[in-house]
Every structure is written in C-alpha cells, then in structure tokens.
C-alpha cells in the first residue's frame, strides 16, 4: 500500500550550501556565486542552483520508500521560482489518486509565505521494485 504523502525533508539554502553544491557539480555559473554579476541579470541578485533544492525531492522519496526503490523511477519537474540565499526549503509530495504517481513540490520560506519553487511529478517503478 503506497502512502498518501511523502515524508517531508527540510534544508537551509545558504551561501555555504550554494558554494558546496557548485564544487560538487562544477557548476560555477556566476548567477549563483557572484552578487555583482547576478544583480545585473533579470533575477536581480544571487539565486541558488535549482537542483540544490530539487535534491530534497530525492531525499523525500528515499525517506518514504527506501533507497532501493529508485529503479524505474521517473521524475519531471519545472523550476517555477528562484530560491534566494538564506532560505529554508521543504520538499514533499502527495499521491495522485490510485496511481503509483506523486505530485511533488519544493516550497521556500520566502516572500512572507511558502512559495512553491519547484513543482512536478514522480512516477514510481514497477510494483516488484517497490517496497
């Protein structure tokens, strides 16, 4: 029986996390790291790598189903809004009907509320690969 909700995961996106993520992925795009450059872009300032926050969706999935349940999994998300430095983000998801599919999201505690910054779906793998 699949649970109705994913176990949520929370994370602080700060300058140190952004820098560490850049070093891990080799993604040194200045829009994430250079305040002077980022201020001149349409974003108006530094934004975090989208996948820094998206990684929490994987962790919510692993926390819910276990790390062995990833085979056959399909994830499809869009990055709806940027995440600024020093922002707490939370990832979670809700099952869609009776399907082995979840609506997933990452919400950021910014703009005096909980902004949905990443939204999409996750489809689980074959039933014999699920817990």
């Amino acid at each position: 029986m699949l649970p109705p909700h994913l176990k949520e995961r929370r994370f602080l996106v700060d300058r140190a996390a952004i820098r560490r993520y850049a070093d891990l992925t080799h993604d040194y795009n200045p829009i994430h790291l250079d305040p002077a450059f980022a201020a001149r872009t349409p974003m108006g300032g530094v934004i975090a790598h989208g996948m820094l926050s998206m990684s929490l969706i994987w962790q919510a999935l692993a926390a819910t189903f276990g790390p062995d349940a990833m085979a056959g999994l399909e994830l499809d998300v869009r990055f709806a809004k940027p995440v600024r430095e020093d922002t707490w983000v939370t990832a979670g998801g809700t099952r869609i009907g009776e399907e082995a599919k979840y609506e997933v999201w990452v919400r950021a505690e910014q703009n005096a509320g909980a902004d949905t910054v990443i939204a999409g779906t996750v489809t689980l793998g074959r039933p014999d690969r699920r817990p």
Binding site: T25, H26, D27, Y28, N29, P30, I31, F37, T41, M43, H49, G50, M51, M54, M70, A71, G72, L73, E74, L75, D76, V77, R78, F79, G125
Partner: peptide
C-alpha cells in the same frame, strides 16, 4: 552536471535552469 559543464565548458554566464526530467 559534471558531464554537462565539462562538455559545455564555454557556455555563456547567466543561463537559467528551467526544467528537469530524470528516468532511473
């Protein structure tokens, strides 16, 4: 991302990641 940044090392600064799909 390591593959992407290695192969596309001369990309313009300021690109924005808008969407992502994965199949494992």
């Amino acid at each position: 991302m390591r593959a992407y940044t290695e192969v596309m090392h001369d990309r313009p600064p300021g690109n924005i990641h808008a969407g992502q799909k994965f199949r494992i």
